[in-house]
Design a protein around this nucleic acid. Structure first.
Length: 319
DNA sequence: CGCCAGGCGGCTA
DNA sequence: TAGCCGCATGGC
């Protein structure tokens, strides 16, 4: 447990003496798109999560979670912030690698959030060959059009839509939101996820056709429970999902901490720290997975954050 | 204007 | 299986 005790406040809760928790590092290490810094502060963020708006504020060693109740925390947000995990132990193990030591010290307050699989899947489909600000804007527009609105401190925010709501979107509507060619992938994926979850409920009422039984395997709860390798294969069946997107979904929403997504930043970090062959992404991935095992996902976050914040570069000919 | 961004799908050899 | 190309979009 990475905090000592919880205190109930009028507008939220406070966690006392929290370890390994830094808002900027958690929200800027590439795992999420719906958290925004408030007043340009490194320790104050506002997020839209699970149909709720909340603020996170770090004051010395205490973390304030505003906008949620004690029940919200106990039933959901403790797991969302991965607070039951001992990051000291993970960092200790990763620091044994002298090259990773610098990246771990730099991202000392990183935690891997346990996010919603559907939102994560759609978000990372949108991330392919795209820019982070544009990904955030796309997700905001999707939520604005298909999500439930939420009132918080006199402002209106929109939750990310449910599979059912997004499954009603047409490809053309999604294109109008500026999602580009990814619109078709998102449209098809949303429909598959919704159909699968819907058919899962139908089983009790009637016999399914062979085609319907086939669609059941797109159920995200089912996929989430699969072992890592099978989980990866299952996710890759969604249109717009390759190895990188599948690794992100597994790591950021399905608790598969051995996943190691290799994107342009991690690629740079691997060349910079380990001198690995820059052209071979699959080799980089297997190198890290063998080296770090079930901690590969954490190492990926420290490497990504270091590479992106430091804007590290690698020689031109190595691209 | 060309280039690129948290890749993927499809086609070729 | 590896290697290449096109792809929507927008900022530089």
């Amino acid at each position: 447990m990475d905090y000592k005790e919880m205190e109930i406040l009028e507008d939220g809760i406070a966690l006392k003496e929290v370890k390994h928790f830094h808002p900027q590092q958690i929200f800027e290490c590439g795992q999420c798109f719906r958290w925004t810094s408030q007043n340009m502060e490194k320790d104050h963020y506002l997020g839209i999560v699970e149909g709720k708006v909340l603020e996170v504020k770090l004051v010395e060693n205490d973390v304030y979670l505003l906008g949620i109740t004690k029940e919200d925390f106990q039933s959901f947000f403790r797991d969302y912030f991965d607070l039951s995990r001992d990051y000291g132990k993970i960092k200790g193990a990763l620091r044994k690698d002298p090259l990773l030591k610098k990246a771990v010290s730099f991202g000392f307050g990183i935690r891997i959030l346990r996010q919603d699989p559907f939102e994560t899947l759609i978000s990372f489909i949108l991330s392919s060959n795209n820019l982070i600000p544009k990904i955030r804007e796309g997700i905001r527009r999707i939520s604005e059009k298909y999500g439930q609105s939420i009132q918080y401190k006199g402002e209106t925010y929109e939750a990310f839509p449910t599979p059912e709501a997004l499954s009603r979107a047409t490809e053309e509507e999604l294109r109008e939101l500026g999602l580009g060619y990814r619109a078709a992938y998102i449209e098809k994926t949303a429909k598959l996820v919704y159909k699968a979850s819907h058919l899962k409920k139908e089983i009790e009422k009637r016999a399914l056709t062979p085609e319907e039984r086939e669609i059941l395997s797109y159920d995200l709860t089912y996929i989430s429970a699969l072992p890592e390798e099978e989980c990866l294969k299952a996710l890759e069946r969604f249109p717009g999902v390759g190895i990188k997107v599948a690794d992100c979904v597994m790591l950021f929403s399905m608790g598969k901490t051995g996943a190691f997504p290799v994107d342009v930043w991690v690629k740079k970090a691997m060349v910079y720290f380990y001198g690995t062959e820059p052209k071979s992404l699959p080799k980089m991935r297997s190198f890290a997975k063998e080296k770090f095992g079930s901690l590969a996902g954490f190492s990926q976050q420290y490497l990504f954050y270091y590479a992106r914040e430091k804007k590290i570069r690698i020689p031109e000919e190595k691209k």
